[in-house]
Amino acid sequence: MNKITRILFEVRKHYKFKWVKRSFEDVIVQTILSQHTSDKNSLKAFENLKKRFKNYNELLSEKDSELEKTIRNAGLSKIKTKRIKKALKELKKIDLKKLSKENSLKIQKELTKIHGVGPKTAAIAVMFGLGKQAIPVDTHVFRVSKRLGIAKGKTPAKVQEELEKKIPEKFKALLHISLIDIGRTVCKPRNPRCSKCILRKNCEYYKNVFNSLNF
């Protein structure tokens, strides 16, 4: 049994992934808002946006300054306003019904052609907007997968590319949510709580720390 198989075995005992259908546009917009800010701030900005505008057509017809004011909680409001508007305009040109019939990686590749949509945003949109398997790599997934030793890439995009190839298709979304939770609760940037981690027996970082203590 290789390392990834052992990790998935443990993950499946503790986590379950349940897809909740969401608007594809909502997923794209919320993910853009989440860039370079906390979940709390991006969620507040998204809630403000949904309250302020009846639909995305109304949002597109408003002045940039109005959207900037509405999403200021998320930070970088000028940049995110331009990205959101450009992404929504470009999405209108895409036949999502037709595109959704393609495999996950092909859809992600097409979505990254949209201004402001990088690999992580594309993977999140595919996973939560279309209900397909993907493994978006945020700061938590990046850190945990590197510590586990299942990825070597120096950037989240490179790690995502690695994991897309290594992880069995049907377990990608499950691994994504589990690594995020582990990263938030135990495998923190500083002072990780290794003794509480369900994956410590399969973790390179833990082995190195354990060996350095000369037990």
Results as ranks from 00 to 15, higher is better:
K51G: 01
A87L: 02
V186T: 07
K69S: 06
K93I: 05
R12C: 04
E169G: 00
T81K: 00
E204C: 05
A123V: 06
K207P: 01
K97N: 01
E164R: 13
K113V: 07
A151M: 07
V11R: 01
L60E: 12
S77V: 02
K13S: 01
Y56L: 10
L174D: 02
T37C: 02
A157D: 15
K113S: 09
K120Q: 10
L130E: 10
S104T: 15
I4Y: 08
E102D: 14
N48Q: 12
E164G: 01
L43G: 02
D64Q: 06
K50T: 11
L111F: 10
P168S: 12
A157Q: 15
T185F: 04
K113F: 09
I182L: 02
K170I: 11
L163R: 14
D39R: 15
K152E: 03
K18S: 15
L88A: 05
S178D: 03
D138R: 14
V141W: 11
K93M: 03
F24M: 09
L175V: 03
K50F: 10
T31K: 08
E164T: 12
R184N: 08
R6F: 07
K146E: 07
K85G: 00
F46H: 13
S42P: 04
K120M: 09
S61D: 11
Q160C: 09
C203A: 12
I32R: 08
K132M: 14
Y206G: 00
L130Q: 07
E10M: 02
E102P: 05
C203S: 06
K98D: 03
H14T: 05
H36T: 12
V126G: 00
M127W: 07
Q108L: 06
L67Q: 00
E10H: 03
R72E: 11
L148T: 10
S104V: 09
A151G: 07
I28Q: 05
I107R: 08
I180P: 00
G129R: 13
T155Q: 09
T5C: 12
D39I: 14
V137H: 11
N208Y: 05
S23R: 04
P189H: 06
T185S: 04
S23H: 10
F171H: 15
S178N: 05
P119H: 11
S61E: 15
Q35W: 12
T155F: 09
K106M: 06
K152R: 12
K101E: 14
H115W: 13
T155E: 08
V29T: 08
S23Q: 07
M127P: 05
